[in-house]
Computed example of a mutant assay.
Amino acid sequence: MATLATLGSISVLRFQKPVPPKTRPSSQLLGFVTSQLSGVKISYDIPDVAPIKPISAPFTPAVRPLARRVCPFTGKKANKANKVSFSNHKTKKLQFVNLQYKKVWWEAGKRYVKLRLSTKALKTIEKNGLDAVAKKAGIDLRKE
Rank of each mutant, 00 (worst) to 15 (best):
V49L: 14
T119W: 01
L94K: 06
T34D: 06
I52P: 01
P65Q: 14
L30Q: 08
R14F: 06
E126M: 03
D140C: 04
E126G: 14
A2F: 12
C71E: 00
I55R: 15
R24K: 15
I52R: 15
K135F: 04
R69W: 05
A132M: 06
A132W: 03
K41V: 13
F73V: 02
D45I: 13
V84H: 02
A81T: 11
R64E: 09
R69S: 13
T23L: 08
A67G: 08
Q95H: 07
N82T: 06
P61N: 10
K93A: 05
V104C: 02
K17E: 10
G109E: 09
K103Y: 03
E107V: 10
V104M: 06
T124F: 01
K143M: 09
V113T: 05
A2K: 13
F15P: 01
S43R: 11
I42G: 00
R142A: 13
L30R: 15
A2I: 14
R14D: 07
V49M: 12
C71S: 02
L122R: 04
L4G: 04
S56A: 14
W105E: 06
V49I: 13
W106V: 08
S11Q: 14
S43L: 13
G129I: 01
G109W: 05
I125H: 00
R116H: 07
R111E: 05
G39I: 03
K92L: 08
G138E: 08
A57M: 11
